[in-house]
Design a protein around this nucleic acid. Structure first.
Length: 473
DNA sequence: CTAGCCTTGAGA
DNA sequence: TCTCAAGGCTAG
């Protein structure tokens, strides 16, 4: 099952322009299959097969006669036929033309981990009448016609959407006195293709020494404010934004510099990035050693960390390391290609899955990374603060003084809140802030899942530092 | 659980 | 202003 679903979703990671072509091939094959099994599978509303077909593909794949047909049957609601069951369709849903019920069905089922099994031969006929009988085959058909589960909003995105609706309702009821704040786009709403593809210049090796004070510039890195949320400077009502205290600004800047300095590329490392380096789970762990060293470098730059006892520092580091590594990995994930960026190229997640066999774990990891990336838009300040909050985790094992760590964490959580209020206004920071906290808490589960996997690895093959830090001895 | 209706925000 | 494509709600 998993293999089936991952193959389906893997093939559909094409760009907008490529979708038409993909759609064409999948639609074609599913139609052929439908005809072969039962001619009555598709509606008998009088449409010829190629007329309904051309309404979906008239722009890119029509012959001249098809164009005549498609113009004659110019898209109307009645023209569209659900590619899954043949019912009347309204339009595209999750990347395929489907009816309302298949849309809802896909939304309910595509993300479920325990997929239903087919009671027959995995080739059940799916039409308006039979679509309810076999959820397995219906879902398979959904994927076949090109529906993408990635287009279903995740928990965070859904919450953000609901919050936005609620906020807009509120604003409609009592418009703000100034009237000059316009919600253009939430930081965590459904990302448009254009804004979600901010280049990740932090991963490049040559950026190593070019870190300057964030309040000035980061060379060629992306803008540090949330690009689509912050209203234009000229229309920005200063009363709606927090002004950070000088020491707060300084602390945020220091953390960001430390974060960027220790995020770095691999240019000067002896790390060799070839596919062979990822041929098994233990090698993956050993490859994380560089990241652990950088994390140590990062925490040592934090005064409040240095102020703790030696024992507490070690315990604190050990308890946060997995989560922190997972968090850092967000910067190296290329959601568009489902691959991990490295200085010498990228490694597709599929290669890692093959190497380790932990498909579900990789799925959870990549989905987390994609979500957080979308939420923070790679803002280095936010990522630096989130990493700091993650480091001071009072919930960790063997901690000497949890209260101290909790108090320190609170300070950084407050700093994050203030920073957001200063960047995206008091009003918009509420949702943004809670979404980020949500992401931080999700990290716990993800880290626990990884920890369970680590226990299965043969400790003889793991480097001493990793053994020590991951408690694998 | 299904399927239809409704609401909503984004974009043309 | 209209269309599209998300999610929510709810009767059956």
């Amino acid at each position: 099952m998993d293999v089936f679903f991952s193959t389906q979703t893997g093939q559909t990671s094409s760009s907008e322009s490529g979708q038409e072509v993909d759609m064409c091939s999948t639609i074609d094959s599913s139609f052929l299959r439908g005809q072969g099994s039962d001619p009555s599978e598709f509606p008998t509303s009088g449409h010829q097969m190629n007329s309904s077909y051309s309404t979906q593909n008239e722009d890119s794949n029509s012959s001249s006669s098809d164009i005549v047909v498609s113009k004659k049957f110019k898209r109307s609601k009645e023209d569209k036929i659900c590619l899954v069951c043949g019912d009347k369709a309204l339009g595209y849903n999750f990347n395929a033309i489907t009816c309302e019920s298949c849309k809802a069905f896909f939304r309910r089922n595509a993300l479920k981990s325990d997929q239903p099994k087919c009671l027959f031969q995995n080739d059940c006929l799916i039409d308006v009448r039979t679509r309810r009988f076999c959820p397995h085959c219906r879902l398979r058909r959904c994927f076949e016609v090109g529906m993408k589960k990635e287009m279903i909003l995740d928990e965070t995105e859904r919450k953000a959407r609901m919050q936005k609706v609620a906020m807009n309702r509120q604003m409609k009821q009592k418009p703000s006195p100034g009237g000059d704040i316009v919600i253009k786009q939430e930081p965590c709403s459904i990302a448009s293709e254009a804004t979600s593809s901010i280049p990740d210049t932090q991963t490049g090796g040559e950026g190593q020494g070019s870190v300057v004070c964030p309040s000035m510039s980061f060379g060629n890195s992306q803008p540090l404010i949330l690009p689509t949320l912050t209203p234009e400077t000229s229309s920005r009502d200063p009363k709606m934004y927090r002004v950070l205290k000088a020491e707060e600004r300084m602390l945020v800047d220091e953390l960001t510099v430390a974060y960027l300095e220790t995020l770095g590329g691999y240019a000067n490392e002896t790390h060799v990035n070839r596919e062979e380096s990822y041929s098994s789970a233990d090698e993956l762990v050993n490859n994380s050693e560089i990241a652990v060293r950088r994390l140590i470098k990062f925490v040592k730059k934090i005064a409040l960390f240095r102020g703790m006892s030696q024992e507490n520092q070690v315990a604190c580091l050990k308890s946060c390391v997995l989560n922190a590594l997972l968090l850092r990995s967000v910067n190296f994930y290329d959601a568009e290609n489902d691959a991990w960026k490295t200085p010498t190229g990228s490694i597709p997640t599929s290669v890692l899955k093959r190497a380790t066999g932990f498909n579900d774990l990789h799925d959870a990891h990549t989905s987390y990374c994609a979500g957080l990336k979308k939420l923070t838009r790679d803002d280095s300040h936010i990522m630096a603060l989130v990493q700091t909050i993650t480091v001071f985790n009072p919930d960790g094992q063997n901690l000497e003084n949890r209260q101290t760590i909790s108090d320190i964490q609170d300070q950084f959580i407050q700093l994050l809140r203030h920073y957001l209020e200063s960047e995206v206004s008091f009003q918009h920071s509420q949702v943004f802030f809670s979404n980020i906290l949500q992401k931080i808490s999700e990290l716990k589960g993800l880290g626990e899942d990884h920890a369970r996997i680590l226990l299965q690895i043969n400790s003889n093959k793991i480097e001493p530092l990793m053994l020590e830090i991951l408690n694998l001895q």
